[in-house]
Simulated assay, not measured.
Amino acid sequence: MKIISTNIAEPTKIRFNGKEVLTGIYKTPTTNPIFLGHELVKGDEVSDRKHHGGIFKACYLFSADYYAYWKNLYPNLDWNWGMLGENITVSGLDETQLRIGDIYKVGHALVQITQPREPCFKFGVKFGNQGVLQQFIEHGHPGTYVRVLEEGLVAVGDTFELVEQAKNSLTTAAFFEMLYAKDKNQDHLSLALKNDALPLKKREKLATFKKND
């Protein structure tokens, strides 16, 4: 996996259901390296601290490989890297290969795969269509958030080197599918509940879907 673009956002006001809110989803490419901090990317707007940023969502990665898919669906949008709201656009990012808990060295930082993006209304506002949320779920390639174990600068051209593969884990794609499945795969659910690369609140919520053996 290789960094194609690093992206940050200024705070942007949007309106939804008659209310004005701030968002950091309108990210654009930077010309300089970005600094991955333990809770956010330095200089990047994180307006909704309840759902974005923090230890388990310090930085969001999305695959450059799927831009063609989204451009085909929304050809009239103003396309550039960062359009999917990602801090880092990565070539070769494959959610069917990434495992929750995997640790990678990239640039001067050490990061751990945590959880996929779950799209919200702000994503729909940006694309001019709230139906894009279901399209995003059905496409099944949500990118991933990472936890920053060692802070540092990353830049275009840096590659992700696997340092440690998570044991007894599940892929980001399998986890994403399980999140939205009505009948959740119980084996996958068991793996997720034991994985401390996922935040405790997420695991506690998932535990309510566990069936008694």
Rank of each mutant, 00 (worst) to 15 (best):
F56K: 05
V146N: 00
G131D: 14
S91A: 07
A173Y: 09
E95Y: 06
G92E: 07
A68Q: 11
K126W: 06
P11V: 08
P33H: 07
T28N: 11
Y26R: 12
N129I: 07
V146K: 01
E161R: 12
A174W: 07
G92C: 13
Y104S: 04
D44E: 06
V46Y: 03
L191K: 15
T28W: 12
L98T: 13
H51R: 12
T114A: 10
Q130T: 00
I8Q: 12
G131V: 01
G124W: 06
V163F: 08
I4Y: 03
A192G: 10
F160H: 05
A207T: 02
Q112D: 14
E45K: 06
D183W: 09
V21W: 10
P142A: 09
P142T: 06
I34H: 05
V156T: 14
Q135G: 00
G43M: 12
T208F: 02
H52C: 11
A207K: 08
K202N: 03
A181Y: 02
A181W: 01
G82I: 03
Y67W: 00
N80T: 14
K184S: 09
G53H: 10
M178W: 03
L191S: 09
V21Y: 08
D213F: 06
E177I: 02
K182E: 11
L193S: 00
T144R: 10
L73H: 07
G82F: 02
V163H: 14
G124K: 05
I14G: 04
V125N: 15
D158V: 11
V163S: 12
Y145S: 02
Y60G: 05
K71Y: 03
A109T: 08
